[in-house]
Each structure stands twice: as structure tokens, then as C-alpha cells.
Design a protein around this nucleic acid. Structure first.
Lengths: 211, 211
DNA sequence: CCCCGAGTTAACCAAAAAGTTAAACCCGAT
DNA sequence: ATCGGGTTTAACTTTTTGGTTAACTCGGGG
């Protein structure tokens, strides 16, 4: 063991070594970013020798790529389904909000990871990480336009509506520590506050768009 | 020159060396974070020797602290003013949106920087970076509650309203590359889209809260 | 004219971190 | 049993990086 750090192996990890490495890398890359996470740290968390990282994944970059691809690829099909379903619009939006807030409150660091990746390594993102199939919101857009035309919805550009909904869902979880400070909430209170978000966002959005 | 990188000195920088270092560090830390930005890089960008970084600022940490403190300290008083002014509520919200979107469209990386700092180094943040005076939104909250009581506003928790407005202002700029992809916009189109945001957000928010 | 000290530099150092190697270890197939 | 390939490890090398040192420049008193 050339290990001067505390090993703190994640327990209960009975999978293959390759998987353990991947899981450890996933956790640390998402938490600390490419530069922040160290190979030794990942090895420690996976409970294996640093050389194994290179045995299974050739380099830090490659390992990072795998993780990034997995993280991003995971959410895309779900969003796609949500946007393309033929539910009535309000129901679709409601489901969308539920899904997004559930997802992001379980994994609050994922959106930050994606955004950072996209801002800091756009080249790599477009070349190797971006999945071929990315959400096509056209169906959703036409649906909104149809409702606006029918007079069921106040006039709004569907693009702005989509961006608004996503912003309202994601941002508060990403900025959770900031919000905690500004609103002066403790651990419990911020949790309660964020738990109210599903209903708060739905109410806000629907009041904004209903005629 | 122990310089194996391309120097690419930022031109037009006629200020003192100390200032040049600070500016270079500011740019790179905001762009790449503490781990991502390298001292050599900062020195190159400032057009000076690496040793000067340590001459003026003792260590990377100290330099980073200065930058972080400046970045965060800058926005706080303005927000404070906005929230505590005694303008009527709608005007206050309107100004708030204008200010935030102006600010974030000029410096799209600042919010990301603050959020990352807060998520990844909360300890340091609270100990050394957090300014004593942070925005106290109480006046704003009471104002909202008063309007709700008077029936001028639909019932809404003022905390959610504040979070909603900030989310709608900041997130689209932070997630700009993501939005570009999903909406399939080119450079020009995304610029135009974001330019519409001020009006779009105001319309959305006011329709959501007006009775 | 010379000194002095702030400013600046090249060269160096030590620690950290990525990556490599060669040997050992398991374990099923021969 | 043993061979052999996939797996794992300790130890090593290389590269990167933050930090230091000693020398040099240069302009303003004395």
C-alpha cells in the first residue's frame, strides 16, 4: 500500500473491480470535477491499487470520459419521453416538474457537473460525450403553440416556457447553499423549503400560463 | 522565461503588476476554478514571472481567497439596495430582473463560480469569504406579504417568489451551452434568445403573481 | 557616484500526482 | 501439477505544479 491517505472504502460494494472503480470515479468526479478528483483518491474509495485504474481505464481522461458519458446519457432518454408523450400539456408539464425535481433532489450535483463540463470543456463534450440522440422538444413546442392559438394559454414562446420550467426546477437545488444563507435557513428548514418546490413551481407556472 | 506554454498576455493592461496579477487570476479562477487554474498559467496571462505571484500574494490559496472575496463582495451591496429600496413591489421586481440579467449576461461565469465555491469549499467560504453584510430580504418579504394580504397578489410564499425570480434570471445564462444544444440554436440565435429574457421573465413572473 | 530597496527574473526544489513496470497471485483448463 | 491468462500489487519513473532562492535591474536619495 503506497497509501498515505485514509482509505475509507465505500462499503457494500460487492460488484466487479471495474464497476467499483467506475462508481468511485463517478462519485468523486461529480463531486469535485476533473481536476479536483485525484486518482489516488478514487483508488482509495474503490478499495484498490492505483495501478488498477490504469489497467481498466487507460488514463484519467478516459475514465472521466466514461463517467461523463454515463451521467449525461442517463437523463436524456427520460426527458425525451416526457417531452414526446401525448399527454395533455398541463399534465405533461406537471410530470416534467415532478421528474426533474425528484431527479435533482436525489442527485443535486449532477446538473452542476453537466454545466461545468459543458462550460469548461465544450470541445470534449461535443466530440466524445454528447449522445447522438438528444431531446427533441419539437412536439412540446407545437403543443404549446397549439394551445396558445386555441386561447387556452397566454401567448408565450414555447422555448421560454421550457427554459423557465427547467430553471425553476434545477436552479434552487444547485444553489441550495446560497439560498440557505440568504434565507437564513437551517438544515431542516432548507430541506422543508425544497420539498415544497414541486407544488410551488407547478402553481407558479400554471398561474403564469393559464388564461 | 521558464515558459513552455503560449504566453498570450492579455493586452491593454497598463496597470500595476499587482493589479495585472489579480486580473489574470480573477479571469482564470472564475473560468476554471481553484484546481483547474495553474499558477504558471496565471503568470503567463499576467505577462510576468511565476515568482511574482508569490511575491505579491503569498500562495495560491491566498490569491484565490482575494479573488473569491472580490467576486462575491461586489454583488452583495447592489442586491441589498435593490431589495431594501421602497419602490412599489412590481417596480422593485422589475429592477431586480434588469439588474440580475444585465450582470449575469456580462459575466456569465460568476454565478457558476460562486455556486461551485459554495458547494466545494463551504468551510473556507464561511470562514473567510462570506462578507459580514449579506442581503437581508426581510423588507422584500414583508412587502410581498402585505400585497398578498391586500389582495393585490395571488398567495405565494415570498421566499419562493424570490427564488423563482433569481432562478429565472440566472439559470439560463449559466446553462447557456446546454440550452443552445437542446433548442438547436446557433451563436446568433442563442444571443437573441437570451436578449429576450428580460421581457420574457418579467411577463412570466407578473402573470404568475398578479391577481 | 554609490547604495538601497522594491521589483523582477531564471533556476532550482520538493511534493504531489499521473502513469508504468515487473513480479506475484489466483484459478480454471489442460 | 502446472500452464497460462486475467487480475492485482508494490515499487518505480515521469511529469506537473506550487513554492523558494539568489542574483540582477533600476531609479531615487545621500
Amino acid at each position: 500500500m503506497d497509501n498515505q491517505h485514509q482509505p475509507e472504502i465505500t462499503p457494500g460494494n460487492t460488484d466487479s473491480t471495474e464497476q467499483r472503480i467506475f462508481d468511485a470515479a463517478h462519485e468523486l468526479f461529480v463531486l469535485k470535477g476533473l481536476d479536483g478528483a485525484k486518482m489516488q483518491e478514487i483508488a482509495d474509495k474503490a478499495g484498490i491499487n492505483k495501478a488498477l485504474l490504469h489497467y481498466y481505464y487507460r488514463s484519467k481522461e478516459k475514465l472521466y470520459e466514461m463517467v461523463a458519458k454515463a451521467v449525461i446519457g442517463r437523463a436524456v432518454p427520460v426527458i425525451q419521453n416526457l417531452l414526446e408523450s401525448d399527454d395533455p400539456l398541463e399534465e405533461k408539464i406537471s410530470r416534467f416538474i415532478d421528474f426533474y425535481i425528484d431527479m435533482v433532489s436525489r442527485n443535486p450535483f449532477i446538473p452542476l457537473f453537466v454545466i461545468n463540463e459543458l462550460n469548461k470543456h465544450p470541445d470534449r463534450f461535443f466530440e466524445t460525450i454528447l449522445p447522438k440522440e438528444l431531446p427533441r422538444p419539437h412536439a412540446f413546442f407545437r403543443q404549446v403553440e397549439a394551445e396558445v392559438a386555441k386561447g387556452n394559454l397566454r401567448p408565450i414562446k414555447p422555448q421560454h416556457l421550457l427554459v423557465n420550467v427547467v430553471s425553476l426546477c434545477i436552479f434552487p437545488f444547485v444553489a441550495k447553499p446560497m439560498i440557505r444563507i440568504v434565507l437564513g435557513l437551517d438544515q431542516q428548514e432548507i430541506k422543508a423549503f425544497l420539498a415544497e418546490r414541486k407544488e410551488a413551481v407547478k402553481a407558479f407556472v400554471f398561474q403564469a400560463i393559464r388564461t
